[in-house]
């Protein structure tokens, strides 16, 4: 079943076109990887899916993105409830200047959940899922800004998971993690796809190959190739894709 359908989507920052006529469908309960060289528009694309680019002045877009069959850019769409069903881990860790606990609990609280026991449980569960619990369980009430970069990244993963979204967008969630934490995060991602649809941006080819079902290769704002991960990595259609994944690129 298609969770996300993108058709003829263009995106511009002012005069510069950043995404060019993108069309592809993302299946639910799968992990979809987005790969491509730096600056090709991966983050921009991801941010279009939960309308994060609304915050940036001077952007323009056309084409259609449907989530659950609904045009997410339709004027009558309630963008807040759209975002509630999409969790996002940003490329740069951005924990709130609050305690570790409050960071994870934030999404629950703004959804009107008051039951403290429930919040406690959810926070613990989310931190465990994000492989951070053991490191922070004794200092849940200290500031999140005192965590290391990799810990902050996992905190942001926990924070996104706490709201039990349907879709999880992850922009290089493992970029600041050591191999052990990365392996655990990958394990989590594979586990999460039972419940969620996951779209992940990564610069790590092996990672994309390990965890994703489908892979999209972007370059300079074009979607060059999109197919099953295995096929893309073993039999890419395009020469340029092959060059990129084998590292002969540029």
């Amino acid at each position: 079943m298609n969770k996300v359908e993108i058709s003829n989507f263009n995106f511009y920052y002012g005069q510069t076109q950043c995404l060019k006529n993108i069309s592809f469908d993302i299946t639910s309960h799968q992990v979809t990887s987005i790969i491509g060289p730096s600056g090709c528009g991966k983050s921009t694309f991801l941010r279009c899916l939960n309308r994060m680019n609304d915050l940036i002045p001077g952007v323009r877009m056309d084409g259609v993105i449907n989530i659950d069959g609904q045009d997410i850019n339709a004027p009558q769409l309630d963008v807040v409830s759209l975002r509630k069903k999409i969790g996002m881990v940003f490329q740069k860790p951005n924990p709130f200047p609050k305690t570790i606990f409050d960071n994870v609990a934030y999404g629950l609280r703004i959804n009107g959940i008051k039951d403290q026991d429930y919040i406690d449980d959810k926070v613990q569960e989310s931190l465990k899922n994000a492989v951070l619990w053991d490191e922070v369980k004794d200092r849940l009430n200290s500031s999140a800004l005192a965590l290391s970069g990799g810990q902050q990244q996992r905190l942001c993963v926990a924070r996104a998971l706490a709201i039990a979204p349907e879709i999880v967008l992850m922009d290089e969630p493992a970029s600041a993690l050591d191999p052990i934490a990365t392996a655990k995060l990958e394990e989590l991602i594979v586990k999460l796809k039972e419940k969620y649809t996951i779209i992940i941006v990564t610069h790590n080819m092996q990672q994309a190959a390990r965890i994703s079902d489908m892979t999209a290769f972007f370059m300079q704002g074009d979607l060059v190739e999109y197919k099953h991960t295995k096929q893309l990595f073993t039999h890419p259609d395009k020469k340029i894709t092959e060059d990129y994944i084998t590292g002969r690129f540029g």
Binding site: M52, L55, V80, F90, F96, Y106, R159
Partner: peptide
């Protein structure tokens, strides 16, 4: 920082909640 606003919006926070709680 705008990153805080973005984080709050991405979690489904509306303008008010973002203002008052973040």
């Amino acid at each position: 920082p705008k990153a805080y606003t973005e984080a709050s919006w991405a979690l489904g926070g509306n303008k008010w909640q973002t203002l008052l709680m973040v």
